[in-house]
Amino acid sequence: MCDHQPPCPSADSPDREAAHPVAHHPGQGWSLLCNGVLLFEDTGELLPDGQVIAPRRPLGTHQVITAA
């Protein structure tokens, strides 16, 4: 699918998110990468073979402040 030089990572490689976007729809929260991966704003992914990769959001670093 990819004709970039050097070629983008394949959909089954660990760095698949580094592929070039071919369609970007921020209002809908997704991008299509040239390797066929649908990348969602919440960091979830849908691979071309139908496999779903769950979102990997970083743990928050919020601190709870209480009134004294």
Rank of each mutant, 00 (worst) to 15 (best):
19 A>D: 04
27 G>M: 02
20 H>C: 10
22 V>H: 10
43 T>D: 07
29 G>I: 06
15 D>K: 07
25 H>D: 15
41 E>D: 05
18 A>I: 03
10 S>A: 06
32 L>Y: 08
29 G>F: 08
43 T>Y: 10
16 R>P: 08
24 H>C: 00
31 S>Y: 02
33 L>K: 04
19 A>W: 04
29 G>M: 07
17 E>D: 13
8 C>M: 12
19 A>F: 06
22 V>R: 13
18 A>H: 12
32 L>E: 15
9 P>A: 11
10 S>R: 09
8 C>R: 10
23 A>P: 00
18 A>Y: 10
12 D>K: 02
43 T>C: 07
31 S>T: 14
9 P>Q: 11
21 P>H: 13
39 L>P: 00
36 G>A: 08
16 R>F: 10
39 L>E: 05
16 R>I: 10
29 G>Q: 12
41 E>R: 04
35 N>G: 04
7 P>K: 15
15 D>N: 13
23 A>I: 09
43 T>I: 04
28 Q>D: 12
34 C>V: 09
23 A>D: 13
15 D>W: 03
35 N>P: 01
9 P>L: 10
18 A>E: 14
36 G>E: 04
26 P>E: 14
21 P>V: 13
7 P>N: 13
25 H>V: 14
12 D>L: 01
18 A>M: 14
11 A>H: 12
34 C>M: 08
43 T>K: 09
12 D>T: 08
13 S>L: 05
43 T>R: 12
33 L>M: 04
